[in-house]
């Protein structure tokens, strides 16, 4: 789903650079203006700033109907798949779907679908101050999956590295961003102990979530990617 122009900077890289430039500026601003609440404001702004390039680029290239419906279908699967695992609590295929989208359609689509899954899930089950953090975390997983595993010719990635990436990514990157968001939202000083404690309280959940991601990728990544490839051929699209 990526445009073929190679000259342009990849939006993922662009976003990272922007974020890196923006962070010190934002921190400075935060310290100067909002003494007490600087971490909350700074972290929130960083998230918004890093999402902007994807959103703007996505809107600007006016994606076609086939792309939109496929991304909507992937998002909906990410939101609704939980219903199939009603007997296994906390079995959330959310990150796995973002990763599969990234692999199939590239980093940008991976980010969009990851963030949308988080947004729509929260829209249905209740938004909260944590929504932007979840959007960012799931989006980043889709983004990284796209950067690492996406191939233009649609060839399937090796399963083992994909699962390792999915599992560790969920446990470390996703878990860290989402669980420590409470600390950024409510604490005055960010200390290692506070971060560890916040992360520790969510560790069990994160382990289950990571296991869910691995199982899901292990069993469903290939069939889903094959199916997507088949649709590509049948309808001559997404190339």
């Amino acid at each position: 789903m990526q445009n073929a122009d190679k000259k342009r900077l990849h939006p993922g890289v662009l976003a990272l650079i922007l974020a890196l430039l923006a962070v010190p500026a934002l921190i400075a601003l935060g310290v100067a203006v909002w003494d007490d609440r600087r971490f909350y404001i700074v972290s929130l702004l960083i998230i918004l700033v890093s999402m902007a390039p994807f959103v703007l680029r996505f809107e600007k290239r006016r994606p076609g109907a086939r792309e939109l419906t496929l991304l909507a279908a992937m998002t909906a699967i990410g939101v609704a798949a939980r219903a199939a695992f009603y007997m296994v609590p906390q079995f959330k295929p959310m990150v796995a779907i973002a990763v599969i989208t990234g692999v199939a359609f590239g980093a940008e689509s991976g980010f969009i679908v990851g963030a949308m899954i988080a947004f729509v899930s929260n829209f249905i089950f209740g938004q909260g101050p944590w929504t932007p953090w979840q959007m960012e975390a799931a989006g980043l997983m889709g983004l990284l999956a796209g950067l690492i595993f996406h191939r233009k010719d649609g060839s399937l990635p090796k399963l083992l590295p994909l699962c390792v990436f999915g599992g560790l990514g969920t446990l470390i990157l996703y878990g860290l961003i989402v669980d420590t968001s409470t600390v950024f939202t409510t604490q005055k000083e960010i200390t290692w102990q506070a971060l560890t404690a916040a992360y520790g309280t969510g560790l069990v959940m994160n382990l289950i979530h990571a296991a869910a991601t691995v199982v899901f990728l292990l069993l469903l990544a290939r069939p889903m990617l094959k199916k997507l490839n088949r649709l590509r051929v049948k309808y001559g699209m997404l190339q």
Binding site: E59, L68, A76
Partner: peptide, 14 residues
């Protein structure tokens, strides 16, 4: 427009 449409379609799909 594109993201709102994805949002609406996702709510239709879920």
């Amino acid at each position: 427009p594109a993201l709102s449409l994805i949002f609406s379609m996702t709510l239709r799909f879920v």
